[in-house]
Every structure is written in structure tokens, then in C-alpha cells.
Design a protein around this nucleic acid. Structure first.
Lengths: 150, 150
DNA sequence: ATCTATTTGGACCAATCTACTCCTATTGGC
DNA sequence: GCCAATAGGAGTAGATTGGTCCAAATAGAT
């Protein structure tokens, strides 16, 4: 059903929590407690986000995670890539070893790429700040987003 | 990794095969033989496409499937919906019973909807004819698609 | 009218992937 | 030197998907 993984969903929630306290280092357990998500999984999500360079983790006592950029400078696409890997609608898009038996039918590949790019762009255009706009009033209201929402 | 199911991928290939012989009724076994896809699965794909109204199946001897509309009038979005169900990026988008523990965080829902709609639009804009353009020369060249493809 | 070929629709398995957990090592503050 | 917290790995149970099979219905042909 063209669904993205629950991890990405969690990722946005976790990032949202970090964004709500921009100057406060929060531990994984802390974030888990405040979001109600399973603690161990939150740890894994934050790890992946750190690997992706979206958050910076400092260890040791009084350690924790911090957003490495401002929410307006982080796109949803980046969160998706950090947690689910590169966006690839079909097996043909990335260089996966797929059983595209007949070569002729696989000429569709180019067309899937176009669809893939369109979806990627849609994800890139929405920033973390846009996602959180209903929650906290950062800046101007979420213009295009608001009219698209029913 | 934001991947759509293999069934949808098959669906486009199957539809492509039907489109290549617009006036010839082809059985599921026939399509399977010509595409190299597993026969039983092709049958299931065609069943779903028939339910979605994209193809019309006639039973009995000499029976088979036929596209119910011209390829230019069939969008990829319709194929996705027929095979994978409605496009729903996250659990929150459709009315699924999800464990969105803290209500505050679920205010993100509205924003996900916007992303969801953007993706849906991207799928709607591409027709079956566009997908098959590299294969058969239907009409004019696939304009926007071609420049998006690397 | 009967018979046969073929689609339809359902139930049913197996394999893959995901979400989640746990354990160990490393690192920074006290 | 000790404690707190991240980093990174492996490992497990459950859900979902891809694929198969069988009985029922239907339309053409005999």
C-alpha cells in the first residue's frame, strides 16, 4: 500500500521532540518517555539519525542528542533516507538484482525513475518545521500545506 | 525504503502486455507466458485489476482479458490502488487503529496528509501510455518524463 | 442441451522483512 | 576511577507479502 516504515514515522516524532527543546540535550530514554514510544526502538532511531548527520549525540553523563540543524533546514526526505535508505519505488530503480525475466518489459524502468523522482521531490519540499507547524508556531503559517489538508 | 509492492510492478507489466495487443483477448496463462512472470500470480493480478475496473475479463472458451480503457486514460495511481489499495504513507493517514500514544505528537497527521497528497498526484499524472512509451511509439514522445529520466 | 475450456473467487502456505529487544564496547563528566 | 549515556552489533518474534492450489461459475462449441 505504498507505506513507509514505522521507523520513519517514529523518526519525525522523535525529531519533533528534539525540536521542541532546541537547547536541551535529551537522552534516548528521555525522548522515549515524552513520546510514549518503545525506549529501545527510540534509541535505534536516534542512532540512525546520528549516522545520517541529522542529530549529534554526545556520550557520557549528562549526554544526549541535539538537532544538528534548524528544523527549517531539515527535509522529510532526509529523515526517510536516514531511516529507510534511499527512496526506491521499485526494484528496478536502484541497482538491485531483480528477476526482470524478459528484457523488453524492463524498458519500463526509465518511467519508474520519473515517478520516483517526483515522489522524492515531494518529500524534499516539506521541511521538519512544516511538519511541526500545527504544534508550535514557528514562523508564518504552513501555507501550501494548510490548503492541501482537508 | 518506501517501496511499492511487487504486485503493482507486475501490474504495470501485465497491463503493458494487454496494451500491446489491444484487440486480442489474452488469457492469464497467455500473459504469463509472454512476460515470464509466475502464472498463478499473474492470474491474481488480473483478478485484482478486473475488480478495479481496469480490465474486463470474459470467461469460457476463447475467453481472456481486455483493457477496459485506452492506455492514455489509465493512470499509474489507478493501478496502484487496484493492487495495493489506497495510497497511505503512514498509519495515521487512513483511519487505521494505530498506537499514537501521545495525542500531541499526532498533530503531525495533517502534515503527513499533505505529503501523501503530493505523492498521489505524482502517480496520477503518469499514464500507462507514458510508462509504455519507450516500448511502443504510441503518440508524441513522453515529454516531461523524458527529461526527468537520467 | 450437454460438454468442455477458461475465468473467478476463495482459502492456504512459505519466505521475507520489520519492529523490537538485548548485550557489549566506548566515551565523557563528576 | 566510577557512573551515565551513546554506539554498534547480533538476535528474535510477529506481521506481511508473494506465490500456489482447489472448487465454483460461466460462456462457447458440439
Amino acid at each position: 500500500m505504498l507505506r513507509l516504515s514505522k521507523m520513519t514515522d517514529y523518526g519525525v516524532v522523535v525529531m519533533g521532540r528534539l525540536a521542541s527543546r532546541p537547547d536541551e540535550r535529551q537522552s534516548a530514554a528521555d525522548v522515549a518517555a515524552n513520546t510514549g514510544l518503545p525506549p529501545a526502538t527510540v534509541g535505534q532511531v536516534l542512532k540512525a539519525l546520528a549516522t545520517g548527520g541529522l542529530v549529534s549525540g554526545t556520550r557520557g553523563a549528562q549526554g544526549g542528542y541535539l538537532l544538528s540543524r534548524r528544523p527549517e533546514a531539515i527535509s522529510v526526505a532526509e529523515i526517510v533516507v536516514a531511516l529507510d535508505g534511499p527512496v526506491a519505488i521499485t526494484a528496478c530503480v536502484e541497482g538491485a538484482d531483480d528477476p526482470c525475466s524478459v528484457e523488453a518489459t524492463c524498458l519500463l524502468k526509465g518511467s519508474w525513475d520519473a515517478v520516483n523522482i517526483a515522489i522524492e521531490d515531494a518529500l524534499k519540499q516539506v521541511t521538519l518545521a512544516d511538519m511541526l507547524a500545527p504544534l508550535f508556531q514557528f514562523n508564518p503559517p504552513p501555507t501550501e500545506l494548510r490548503e492541501a489538508t482537508p
